[in-house]
Design a protein around this nucleic acid. Structure first.
Lengths: 242, 242
DNA sequence: AAGTGGTCTAGACCACGAG
DNA sequence: TCGTGGTCTAGACCACTTG
């Protein structure tokens, strides 16, 4: 029934529909926050039944690519500040609540990527990266020392974005069209160094969480590498395993 | 159409079906690993359409309560050793691979629950808890010092289970009918104490990950509290945020 | 009132697994 | 060959949002 000029043949129809819609979103045909055509319109355009479109959209909802609201329609997901924080900022106190973090930028700079950065961000040899270093505060106390590494090719002239917002992911989305939906984190324990002691105001010899995060764009490319060093005397990293 | 004697009325049919099936599983009517009736049989028994049963089972599949295999049927989830490790053991090396851990039991004991344990495990005042203390090794090197806290009421005479298996969750399931599907973890960084230095063979002043895990049974009750202290010089805690 | 997504049904055919 | 879940369709009605 369908045209079947999709990238992947021999796939269930609803998977093809899903990939078609995903491609349109990734290419910016539908921007974050915008309203998609209704199920019936899409079904008509693509020559499949409404139920098949629904199954594709249901999976995209589960993956948080779109948001569906009864009576209103289906929308491309948007990073609100709250969503980004709730999803990616995992520090909270013993009751599981976290005051809204604020940020103090320490430095913004640029240099050639290290080999490790090249590998993790899938950069060409010798590419330039931007570095953002900042301290994040909870209840006005410094808690996290954070270093963000971005490809200058993906995020041109990011240093000029002033002031940098507290949640960078909303900036990536609004200024660079990059939606971050997933990330991998790698957590170790380290002893605070001199810089940590100064900026986080912790005693010599303190233990810190070191979190290395690689964040992925909606199309699956790694786009941001972020190192966080966190004091955990007031807050802890909380996660659900499901 | 349906009998509608379900616990929650005014719910979509497929939610009622799901809760009905879940109840049967929780009560042990269908044991882990056993085959459920086919979609059509269930639909007939419950007086709903096959598509409604499918939607309920699809959600239960997403929640890992059941496993579906084309051509064979739908089975109640079973903890295999591999699944339990893959799901709940988050330590791996830089390449993301983890050698199979082994365990050395340090002690098994029993005492009255602390107030903190009572609160977290939802115990009555003064209940007894069992404590299992063990060191877990990766590639024959001690990596984790682990303390497991269990209600003696839920897990009677667990000390007699000898030898304790490497993956306790399979024991909970086979001996006590407790299936653990989800957990919450709370991670902080601590400085190694004397005991850590001895048992994990780390130098004085080392930083360790301290992981507090509260694991939940299939019916949502908290059933196990586990404290882990991990060296992260060879391995790191790895997690995906989705 | 009109349009949207949410639920529910019924029936068709396909792909897989086991006897 | 048979029974299973997996896919796909078509149509009905409901619940919610907007004008």
């Amino acid at each position: 029934m369908p045209a079947d000029q999709s990238p992947t043949r021999f796939q269930p129809l609803y998977v093809q529909v899903k990939e078609h819609l995903l491609t349109r979103i990734v290419e910016g045909y539908w921007l974050p926050g915008s309203l998609l055509p209704s199920e019936n319109q899409l079904a008509g355009e693509l020559g499949v039944s409404q139920g098949t479109v629904r199954k594709a959209l249901d999976e995209m909802t589960a993956e948080k690519v779109v948001v569906r609201r009864q009576g209103r329609g289906t929308f491309v997901s948007e990073h609100t500040q709250e969503q980004a924080l709730f999803h990616f900022f995992r520090l909270a106190d013993a009751e599981g609540v976290s005051p809204a973090p604020s940020s103090e930028v320490i430095s913004v700079s640029q240099r050639e990527a290290t080999l490790d950065e090249e590998a993790k961000l899938e950069l060409k040899s010798g590419e330039q990266v931007a570095l953002i270093e900042r301290v994040r505060l909870l209840a006005e106390q410094p808690v996290v020392l954070e270093t963000v590494v971005l490809s200058c090719a993906n995020f041109p002239n990011i240093a000029a974005q002033q002031p940098l917002p507290n949640t960078l992911y909303t900036l990536y989305q609004s200024q660079y069209g990059v939606s971050i939906l997933t990330a991998k984190e790698n957590i170790t324990a380290v002893v605070a160094d001199k810089k940590d002691e100064t900026l986080l105001k912790v005693p010599k010899g303190s233990a810190l969480l070191r979190i290395e995060r690689l964040a992925f764009s909606i199309d699956g490319r790694p786009v941001e590498l972020r190192y966080s060093r966190c004091t955990t005397n007031q807050y802890s990293y909380q996660i659900e395993l499901t």
